[in-house]
Computed example of a mutant assay.
Amino acid sequence: MNMKRAFGAILTVLGIIGIIWGAYAFVMGGDGGAIGKYTALVPFLVGLIFFFSGIGLVKTTKDQT
Rank of each mutant, 00 (worst) to 15 (best):
L45Y: 10
R5E: 04
T12Q: 13
F44Q: 01
I19K: 06
M3H: 09
F26H: 02
T60F: 15
G29R: 00
T60W: 11
F7Q: 10
I49H: 05
P43C: 08
L41M: 12
L11K: 03
V42G: 00
G54I: 04
L14N: 04
W21K: 07
L11F: 13
F51G: 01
K37V: 08
Q64T: 05
A9D: 10
Q64P: 03
Y24W: 15
I16E: 03
G22I: 04
G33L: 05
M28I: 14
D63C: 06
A6Q: 14
A9Y: 13
Y24I: 12
F50L: 07
G29T: 11
T65Y: 04
A40F: 02
Q64D: 07
I17R: 03
K62T: 13
F44E: 04
A40L: 01
K4E: 09
I35T: 09
I10K: 14
G18M: 01
G47C: 07
T60N: 12
P43V: 04
I35C: 04
M28N: 10
G47M: 02
Y24V: 12
F50E: 00
T61K: 13
D31L: 12
K4W: 07
F52I: 15
A9W: 09
Y24F: 14
A23L: 13
Y38H: 02
D31R: 14
G30V: 01
T61M: 05
G47S: 06
F52M: 14
A40M: 03
G15W: 00
I17S: 02
I16T: 10
L57N: 04
L41S: 10
M3Y: 07
T65A: 11
L41G: 08
Q64C: 05
I10F: 15
G30W: 02
D63G: 11
L57H: 13
T60E: 09
G30L: 02
L11P: 00
I55N: 13
G30K: 04
K59H: 09
A23K: 06
G56S: 09
F44V: 08
L14S: 08
G32S: 08
A34D: 06
F52V: 15
L14E: 12
V27R: 14
M3D: 13
L45A: 09
A6T: 14
K37G: 09
G32R: 15
F26N: 02
K59F: 12
F50D: 00
A6I: 15
I49P: 01
G33V: 00
F44H: 07
W21P: 00
F50H: 00
G32T: 05
